[in-house]
């Protein structure tokens, strides 16, 4: 299955306009400065926001087509979405959260073991650490057998050590997934580490030169001042 999208949307400070494709088993990392429209793109792919124009096609299904007035609601797209910060249900324990929409509840145990949180099954989200919550959120998304996995800065609220660990776990997991994965980040390390393909997004448009300019800090370019949050030094692994 391949995801291909052409999106246009008028936002407050700029017009979002870009198109991309992402085939099964590939991880596309969308990178760019904060406020550049990355989350809006993900929300449109998920069906939570409507583009003004364009189309989203997944395999042979049309998810959105402005010309033909097609808009498949998020419920029917069957995708996994891990948010920037924790959106586990606070009234449920971790196990019930992960099993919330699971295709097969037995898989939840396997996932919990894989992500090393099986000792926390009975804990509520507020009783565990941020990293454990995000692990659970990934389990929740995977247990639904998503056809497309969207990860919107899933580790950005975590400390560096936890983030690095989870990043590696995700990279190991990538080979086992049989769906396109779209990963949003503003962290260049993360992008270079995880990506099969990088899509730099600046002010709602694809800007292939952005990565280069940000790394080298080419003088006079506007993007530099709004560049990646981490200093250049951290590029050295």
């Amino acid at each position: 299955m391949t995801l291909s999208a052409t999106l246009k949307k008028r936002l407050k400070y700029f017009d979002l306009e870009l198109s991309f494709t992402c085939p099964t088993g590939r991880m596309m990392v969308m990178i760019g400065p904060s406020g550049g429209g990355k989350t809006t793109i993900i929300r449109m792919l998920a069906g939570l926001a409507k583009p003004d124009d364009g189309r989203i096609i997944f395999g042979d299904e049309v998810w959105f087509d402005a010309g033909r007035c097609i808009h498949i609601p998020p419920q029917k797209r069957r995708l996994g979405y891990v948010f920037q910060d924790y959106t586990l249900f606070p009234n449920l324990n971790l196990y019930d959260n992960a099993a919330f929409a699971a295709v097969d509840k037995k898989e939840v145990d396997v996932l919990f073991e894989l992500f090393k949180i099986d000792h926390l099954k009975k804990r509520r989200p507020h009783m565990v650490s941020g990293g454990e919550r995000q692990r659970c959120a990934i389990c929740q998304a995977l247990a639904r057998h998503p056809r497309l996995l969207l990860l919107d800065e899933p580790f950005s609220a975590l400390d560096v050590i936890t983030r690095r660990g989870l990043r590696e776990e995700l990279k190991n997991l990538k080979g086992k997934l049989s769906c396109p994965v779209i990963y949003v980040t503003h962290d260049i390390n993360e992008a270079l580490f995880l990506a099969d393909e990088i899509l730099p997004v600046v002010d709602g448009k694809n800007d292939d030169g952005w990565l280069q300019r940000t790394i080298t800090r080419e003088p006079g370019s506007q993007a530099v001042s709004r560049g990646a949050r981490e200093p250049r030094l951290s590029l050295v692994y």
Binding site: P73, P74, Q75, R78, T87, P90
Partner: peptide, 21 residues
């Protein structure tokens, strides 16, 4: 949003997410 993505209708989200929380 998370509930909708996990497949819950608005009605189901009301009963399973809004009310218990």
């Amino acid at each position: 949003d998370a509930a909708y993505i996990l497949g819950l209708s608005k009605r189901a989200a009301f009963l399973r997410v809004i009310i218990p929380n």
